[in-house]
């Protein structure tokens, strides 16, 4: 197979959201002497296209989640090779994200995670019902550029304020940008609690994250 054919096979395997087939196609690409950076680009460009399709509601959340799983499977094969060659994959930035304590509504957060990954961010997803201390501890471990906290309920959004206060108290406030969002949060509230960014919906939040990173 030519290089183009190998990369096309990788793209097709990835688009079928098949983890095993993507892993295999990535291995075949390496065996065929394809530059791992090129193979990674195929995956990142394709997932970006999927992200755009999702913003137009041409595909849906589970498709993006499955694609993200397949991408991770492909990267497990490609990344060690990249490291051997000391090549670096570029990410737009690192985001630590979670739904605040007391709130189990994580669909909006999951949508944002998949769209951020599709745009090329590295995302550490803490899931739902995440206590403030956990946000902070994980931030110290992963050193993200942005901490993003989501709240759907009016009664859980005070946790976002609490997170900012906690970071201030520890002297970490300037170390991270803090983004907030979710059904109970408005730009007005975000400003009131001193957040750096707010997105009303996932596509808007991705743009806000890009702006925060570029500052």
């Amino acid at each position: 197979m030519s290089k183009e054919e190998v990369l096309e096979k990788l793209r097709r395997s990835f688009l079928s959201y098949d983890e095993e087939a993507t892993r295999k196609a990535a291995a075949e690409a390496l065996a065929a002497g394809v530059d791992p950076l090129e193979a990674v680009s195929v995956l990142t460009e394709t997932i970006r296209e999927l992200g755009e399709k999702f913003s137009k509601m041409e595909i849906f959340l589970p498709d993006l989640m499955l694609a993200a799983d397949a991408m991770r499977a492909g990267l497990t094969v490609l990344k060690p090779e990249l490291m051997k060659r000391k090549a670096e994959t570029r990410t737009l930035g690192k985001i630590l994200i979670g739904v605040v304590k007391g709130d189990i509504h994580d669909i909006g957060k999951t949508i944002l995670v998949t769209m951020l990954e599709a745009e090329g961010f590295e995302v550490i997803d803490l899931g739902k019902d995440v206590p403030i201390r956990k946000f902070v501890e994980e931030a110290q471990t992963h050193n993200p550029d942005i901490i993003a906290a989501s709240a759907l309920m009016t009664t859980t959004r005070p946790e976002q304020r609490g997170l900012i206060e906690y970071l201030k108290h520890l002297g970490f406030r300037d170390k991270y940008k803090v983004m907030v969002g979710g059904g109970a949060v408005t730009s007005q509230y975000a400003e009131e609690i001193g957040a750096d960014g707010y997105g009303e919906n996932a596509p808007e939040a991705v743009e806000v994250a890009k702006k925060l990173i570029s500052k």
Partner: peptide, 12 residues
Amino acid sequence: SIIGGLAGGPEG
């Protein structure tokens, strides 16, 4: 039941 969420499109 969220359109575009885990159930997929409007029909799902």
